[in-house]
Amino acid sequence: MAELLKEQEETQKWGMVIDMDICSGCQACVTACSMENNVPFVGEDEMAYGRGLQWMRIRRYWEGEYPEVTPTHQPMLCQQCGSAPCEPVCPTFASVHSQEEQINVQVYNRCIGTRYCANNCPFSARVFNWFDYETPAPMNSYLNPDVSVRRRGIMEKCTFCVQRIVHGRQQAAAEGREVEDGDIVPACAQACPTDAIVFGDLSDPESKVSKMSRSDRAFKELEELGTQPKVIYLKGGKSYGG
């Protein structure tokens, strides 16, 4: 067991730290993610039926009773689990672990749409293309050419902006250097007005995420399930500090 854990320690790579103490819940990350990743909008009726395709959601719960009531905002996205429940259940390896990046990859063109992975995700982080969603011309002009546009019947989810990871690595290789901390920033972290989202290499003990993940406020969502999430939350709210 210890060996197993050690191995997992060694194999982790990309990670994200979300400081819920300074996350204001403003939803800029949600919009940024959607605009970066060609996430289609689905309209009011589909949103009302729980079919929004946001890869990232801010989970908002209320705490306390009036007048001490206050919401908690928790950005929820694919946790890029080290031992992901979505991966073994996919019959075609469309949901598969990237050995290089140590993230969960969704290979759109291999997906046949069993939706098993989505059932099995305890974070409800996966979304399904129920239809072919239209982006009426000329609005399709802004679609990001680095990200595949998904057609109907395909699962999708947060990729940690893998297109930026690949691009960042190729850029570094072309310049003949290693990828440095801060080279690669996913769209959500880039937009976050309070810099609550930090992305980086967990295998590098000196990286910003590694340092932050060692905070005593750090916790992982549903850690008891043993999925080894790569998204680390820093406990926030009024209980902390002061």
């Binding site: 940024a32 605009m35 399709n140 802004y142 990001n144 769209a187 880039q190 937009a191 976050c192 007005p193």
Partner: peptide, 29 residues
């Protein structure tokens, strides 16, 4: 125009951008 990002050197937002700015390409197109 593909994606709106913040200007890191700009004194107002220092590289950050909000939902409204991000969707300005949807106004353009």
């Amino acid at each position: 125009a593909i994606k709106v990002e913040g200007n890191p050197n700009h004194p107002v937002n220092q590289g950050k951008v909000c939902s409204r700015g991000l969707t300005s390409v949807q106004g353009l197109y």
